[in-house]
Every structure is written in structure tokens, then in C-alpha cells.
């Protein structure tokens, strides 16, 4: 969607490096990222910091909470990564992000999961209605995109009203993965496949045709868009190394 280059960039970067040398600290940059990408983006950040004198702070929350925090000035950040289109559009409408700077480099898939030790077996999607499953953990549809996608899939397949009484929501995906890992054998959770870990097992993949495409959206906050560190980090994330790390973590990486 958006690719940029500027001749001013090396000059400004040089100037900032000089100023940085006179101060006590390296330059710092803050990323506000959707929880589902938190671990992966930290790997990218570590590799970037190893080569550049830039200290990176991470704020990992649900996309909606981040968008509202940024909008209400409770959160200050330089780059925002959302797990769906809705909250990125919210920021664009709020005038804090320019539409032409938004990129969508990765996608993801939903999967029904259970604790690693759970004896549950799921042969078809409609098994969710059965008596074997007592509790279904999903993300908060209001603020966590993976919850919104899950609700859309359940509504599309006509199961939403039948399973609603089993549902418990969680504010973000890390919390859901943690809660699910500690749950009993009659509990399942629906989350992004990239957030599975060794304490969880995948039971059933959710058909992507049942919900809109799961895409991540990334953009610099307007006030930081022209900072050399911001642009350098964005380029690194979208570059070969960034894409490789995301690809290895299980994300569907869009070719450049």
C-alpha cells in the first residue's frame, strides 16, 4: 500500500546520531503492538537493536485498547501494529495516522485449541455444540480482533446462538493462551495459530472462508513518521530479515 523513500533521510539520521552522542542515551522508540505479534516483533526488535544504537520499548495490548489509548493520549508510541483493519481505520479517522503510510505485511489463521494434556478430539466444527465441550474461551470481540473473527465465524456457520452460553471472553490473546493452558479437559479456546505453544495442542483449524481475511496493519504515528529511527525500523521489519522471522513464527507473509 505504501512505500516511501527520502533523500533527506541519511542527513537527518546523521544529525540525530551526532546529537545522540552528546547526550547520555541512545535514541529510543516505542512500539504499540497487538498482543498476537508481541513475541515475534520483539525478536525482530532485538535483531535491529543489535545493529543500531536504538532502544526499543514495547507496549503489548489488544489492538482496540492500544488504538483508544493512543487516541486518548494515555499511550505514547511511534509505531502501531493492529491485528485487524477496523482499529487501523479508527486511527486514520482520528487523524493520528496517514492512510498512505499503512502497510499490511502479514496474515494469520484461527485454530481451535485445547490444553496439551486434554483428551478432547474434534472431528468437525459443529463438535463445539456437543456436550463434551463445556467452556469456549474467545477474545473480547469489542477490542481483540481474534475475538471478532471468531464471532464472525461462529455467526456465519450459525453456531453463535447455540454456543453462546459456553463462552467466556478474555481481554487479549496472551491472557487467553495462559488461561487455556491451565484449564480442564472440557475447555477449548479459539486463537491465532501463531500463539500456540508447547502447553497447548491444535484441535481443529478454522476455515478462513467463514470470516474476513485476517490481516495485520502497521503504520507510523504521524508525529513520529519523519523520525529517522522510525523509518529505519519500519524498513527493517518489512525487509527480508523481518519477513523471515515472521514467516518462521507461522504468519502468512505477503511477498514484497
Amino acid at each position: 500500500m505504501y512505500q516511501h523513500s527520502s533523500n533527506l533521510f541519511p542527513g537527518i539520521f546523521f544529525l540525530c546520531c551526532c546529537l545522540g552522542l552528546t547526550g547520555v542515551h541512545a535514541a529510543s522508540i516505542t512500539l504499540a503492538v497487538a498482543n498476537s505479534t508481541c513475541n515475534t516483533i520483539k525478536q525482530v526488535g532485538e535483531r535491529f537493536s543489535a545493529r543500531h544504537p536504538v532502544e526499543i520499548d514495547y507496549i503489548c495490548k489488544s489492538s482496540g485498547r492500544l488504538a483508544k489509548g493512543l487516541h486518548g493520549r494515555a499511550i505514547e508510541a511511534d509505531i502501531y501494529i493492529s491485528a485487524n483493519r477496523r482499529w487501523m481505520e479508527y486511527m486514520v479517522k482520528g487523524g493520528q495516522i496517514s492512510a498512505d503510510k499503512v502497510t499490511s505485511p502479514w496474515g494469520n489463521r484461527l485454530v481451535v485449541s485445547a490444553p496439551a494434556a486434554s483428551p478432547l478430539v474434534m472431528e468437525q466444527w459443529s463438535d463445539l455444540v456437543g456436550e463434551g465441550i463445556h467452556t469456549i474461551l474467545i477474545g473480547d470481540p469489542g477490542t481483540a480482533p481474534f475475538g471478532r473473527y471468531t464471532k464472525q465465524a461462529l455467526q456465519r456457520t450459525g453456531l453463535w446462538e447455540q454456543v453462546k452460553h459456553k463462552i467466556t471472553t478474555k481481554k487479549h490473546i496472551t491472557l487467553l493462551a495462559e488461561t487455556l493452558a491451565r484449564s480442564d479437559g472440557r475447555t477449548v479456546g479459539i486463537l491465532f495459530s501463531t500463539n500456540l505453544n508447547h502447553r497447548l495442542q491444535a484441535l481443529f483449524p478454522v476455515d478462513p472462508a467463514w470470516h474476513p481475511p485476517i490481516r495485520y496493519y502497521m503504520a507510523p504515528i504521524d508525529k513520529s513518521a519523519d523520525r529517522p529511527e522510525t523509518r529505519q525500523l519500519l524498513d527493517f521489519i518489512l525487509g527480508p530479515e523481518g519477513r523471515e522471522i515472521f514467516g518462521n513464527a507461522g504468519f502468512h507473509v505477503t511477498p514484497p
Binding site: G64, I138, D140, P141, G142, T143, G147, I167
Partner: peptide, 9 residues
């Protein structure tokens, strides 16, 4: 009830 907490708020 329909888990639309945001809109409900």
C-alpha cells in the same frame, strides 16, 4: 450479552 462490550459501553 452478545459480548459486544465496546458498543455496550
Amino acid at each position: 450479552n452478545d459480548f459486544e462490550k465496546e458498543a455496550a459501553f
